[in-house]
Amino acid sequence: MIHDEKIEKKKVMMTQNETCTLENEHLRIEFDDQGNLHQITNLEKGIATSFTTQGFYWYTGFPGNNSRSEFQASGAYFFRPLMPDPQPVSTMRSITCTKTETVQSALIIFNNWASQEVNLFQGSAAVEFEWTIGPIPIDDYIGKEIIVRYDTDIQSKSTYYTDANGREVLERKVDYRPTWNYTVNENISGNYYPISSRIWIKDEQRQLTVLTDLA
């Protein structure tokens, strides 16, 4: 016995290396045709945050011999850049924009070992950034510390907030400690903190929060 079945095809739209806008009832995320994140808009509040850059960078790791504390090398448990300014993992990137009824995504490929997928699900008030890094090339014999950076127009006054081992939230200020006179010996790593759940910056009207799913 043969039954007539209606097969509904889901509509999928895909573009490559074109401007890309992900949007649901809560948020709008805008990329240019080179995969640069330009703006995230909260549609309910009519508030937008602009980005000058967003992507992956790397510091050259300090090549110490660990014979003394001042010669400790950068490694798995010790973040210690050699130079103060990070380098972008790539000067070019590609973007593939995919839209379905349930999720819209932008796949951004920086090079053959660094990429990220930005997902906006229907009904969600948060944007998901899923990144893939590695294997990190070491054929140049240079150790690399990889970071992801979000440069925004939020006027944070060098203040940010992080969780403390996933529990209370502490206010942080660049090159400052509230309980002692802080001497800057590590001007880069001294302003990095391990976070288990969240970090944010804010000004009088806006707040950008990054929630981690892995510590």
Rank of each mutant, 00 (worst) to 15 (best):
W180E: 07
E44G: 12
I40L: 07
I147P: 09
W113T: 07
L27K: 03
Q54R: 15
T209I: 09
M13N: 13
F79L: 02
A126I: 12
N111Y: 15
T152N: 03
S156R: 02
E8F: 15
D163I: 03
L208A: 08
S156L: 01
E18K: 15
E70W: 13
M13Y: 11
K202F: 04
L22Y: 07
F62L: 12
S74E: 01
F78P: 15
V184W: 08
K173V: 06
I29F: 11
N111I: 09
F78H: 06
Y141I: 05
N42H: 04
W113L: 09
I2T: 13
R28S: 12
G75V: 00
E171I: 08
I201D: 00
S197W: 02
R28K: 13
E204L: 03
A164I: 12
D33R: 01
T132V: 14
S94G: 10
R28Y: 08
M13A: 07
T98L: 10
K9E: 06
P178T: 04
I147N: 01
R80W: 06
G64I: 15
A106F: 10
W131G: 11
V210S: 01
S74Q: 03
L211W: 05
N191Y: 04
K9W: 11
T91S: 13
S94C: 13
A76M: 02
I29G: 03
S94Y: 14
P194I: 00
T96W: 10
Q72D: 06
I146A: 00
F71W: 12
E5Q: 12
S74H: 09
S69E: 15
V103A: 09
C20E: 06
G46E: 01
N24S: 03
H26D: 08
T60N: 02
H26I: 07
P137C: 12
T49M: 04
N185T: 10
D175G: 06
V89G: 09
L27R: 00
C20F: 06
N66S: 01
G35D: 06
D213R: 01
F79S: 08
D140S: 12
T41G: 04
S115A: 15
H26A: 00
A48H: 05
T212W: 00
K45Q: 06
E168P: 03
Q87S: 07
E70I: 10
Q39T: 11
F51V: 03
Q16Y: 07
I188C: 02
D4T: 10
N181G: 05
F31N: 11
L82I: 07
P86G: 00
T212P: 02
H38A: 10
D85L: 12
V118Y: 13
I7W: 11
